[in-house]
């Protein structure tokens, strides 16, 4: 209990940071993942090749390396910090934004592959009907195929989002003040490893279990009936 009274405010702040990280990265991953999936099913050879190469490289790189590359590679070597260097909070803002970038680019590859599996569940007749009405490839994808592909993979997308929420703990390696960074600090200060561990595990479950429930509900509600 003392831990909760002493660190309660910090705990909430840290988990809000975690939610911000995961939320923004989820949006980025869904947008980028959709673009990648569209490229991977495109009839244009160059687009397919670029997207396939991207997915294979990023998906097979450990997330820690992706996050470290964003921080050290982009920020320190190339000077890409994504912030105004004169801002007083430039360092924390920069780590946070770079972490969002890293999580988005990494998770997008999983979103892309899930969606591509979803595209394969849409019967060929759907895109033939779209083509026969004079819709172009992109229109057919946008209005007919991808909406149905999304509905088919809501449940696996939920798993990807849960993994993303838990993956945000890796942002602590570049100093983003999310939940796990606070956890290390609390453990060092209190040495109550098990209790602290349980508190933080519970904290993450408060985020991931509702996420799973929401996606499970959407999966049923949005399912395409044929």
């Amino acid at each position: 209990m003392e831990i909760l009274t002493e660190y309660g405010d910090q705990l909430i702040t840290a988990f809000i940071r975690t939610i911000q990280l995961a939320g923004l990265s989820a949006v980025g991953a869904l947008v980028l993942g959709t673009i990648l999936a569209a490229m991977r099913v495109s009839p244009v050879w160059a687009l397919r090749t670029v997207a396939t190469g991207y997915v294979n490289i990023v998906r097979n790189t450990p997330l820690t390396l992706v996050v470290l590359f964003a921080s050290f590679g982009l920020a320190q070597q190339l000077g890409v910090t994504l912030v105004d260097p004169n801002s007083p909070t430039s360092i924390t803002d920069s780590s946070f934004r770079l972490a969002v970038l890293a999580f988005s680019t990494y998770t997008a590859t999983f979103v892309c592959e899930a969606l591509r599996a979803g595209v394969n569940t849409v019967p060929i007749g759907q895109s033939e009907a779209a083509r026969s009405l004079g819709l172009g490839f992109t229109q057919g994808l946008r209005y007919i195929v991808l909406p149905q592909a999304f509905r088919a993979v809501v449940a696996p997308l939920g798993s990807i989002m849960i993994a993303l929420i838990k993956n945000t703990t890796i942002a602590s390696v570049i100093g983003v003040a999310e939940a796990s960074l606070l956890m290390k600090e609390v453990i060092e200060n209190t040495s109550a490893l098990i209790v602290v561990g349980l508190i933080f595990a519970l904290g993450f479950m408060c985020l991931t279990i509702p996420t799973g429930a929401v996606f499970g509900f959407l999966s049923k509600k949005l399912a395409v009936r044929t």
Binding site: P123, E128, A129, Q148
Partner: peptide, 23 residues
């Protein structure tokens, strides 16, 4: 390309399996 989509717009087609957009 565009010419083909324009051409198809003028040709109506009805399929054996209906192929109505399910969503």
């Amino acid at each position: 390309g565009k010419a083909l989509t324009r051409y198809r717009a003028d040709v109506g087609m009805v399929f054996q399996s209906f192929n109505l957009f399910a969503h």
